[in-house]
Design a protein around this nucleic acid. Structure first.
Length: 216
DNA sequence: ACCCAGGTGGCCC
DNA sequence: GGGCCACATGGG
């Protein structure tokens, strides 16, 4: 009930975000691995570097050298880890699915999710971002921003699965809504969850009346 | 000179 | 199952 209200307020305030910015599904996956603990600004640089060297396919990345990948993804930080994980992911797609994503995503959802989670560098948020934005699955990714905002709102008492379940059972079952909602929460948190006391300007100020004196 | 960013995995208790 | 820590560049 409150969720759709929050969704409407956020759309009204920030407008549609049109996530995920990427030209291909595989590029969504690359971005999901690179954006961990990094800013999208720096991920864009890395993706442009990869693009310039024609390294945005599973085949190309799995065949690239580690130093070359490291040079490309350096701006996103943790570049040695990320280069390794990126190449492992690409190699896995190449070996198991001939570099195609359809045969992966057409399997039962639970299996796909567990398989993604078993890969190096893919935790719950990355897996769920990939499932939603590349796989068109009705899965809501819970990131640190979502936690923080929903803690302030008084909803985020449980673990990852519980908070995710809250979204799954309180949002309209539409990809478009899931995608926008996740993007809008990130936008909200970036603007209003920092050190500035902006409660009076926050579009959700009336959703947390008992927390009015607290920043959201 | 700090502090944080669209996390994850490994280790310790 | 929870609490630290390393991973690392770039921007405020």
């Amino acid at each position: 009930m409150a969720q759709i209200k929050i969704y409407r307020k956020l759309v009204g305030h920030f407008g549609k975000q049109h996530w995920w910015p990427a030209e291909t599904k595989f590029e969504v996956i690359v971005g999901a691995l690179l954006t961990q603990q990094s800013t999208w600004r720096n991920v864009e640089k890395a993706i442009n570097n990869l693009k310039k060297e024609s390294l945005l396919t599973p085949k190309a990345i799995s065949g690239a050298s580690l130093p070359q990948l490291e040079r490309c993804v350096r701006p996103t930080g943790f570049y040695r880890q990320k280069a390794r994980r990126l190449r492992k992911f690409a190699g896995y797609l190449q070996n198991k699915y001939h570099g195609k994503l359809e045969p992966l995503f057409s399997r039962p959802l639970d299996e796909v999710r567990n398989e993604l989670l078993s890969l190096d560098g893919v935790g719950p948020e990355t897996a769920d971002s990939i499932l939603l934005y590349a796989g068109e699955k009705l899965i809501f990714p819970i990131d640190a921003y979502t936690r923080r905002v929903y803690e302030r709102l008084g909803y985020a008492k449980g673990d990852y699965a519980e908070l995710q379940e809250f979204f799954h059972s309180n949002l309209p079952a539409k990809f478009e809504v899931y995608k926008e909602m996740h993007a809008l929460i990130v936008e909200l948190a970036k603007n209003y969850c920092k050190t500035k006391p902006l409660c009076e300007k926050c579009p959700l100020r009336n959703q947390c009346s008992h927390l009015r004196s607290i920043r959201i």
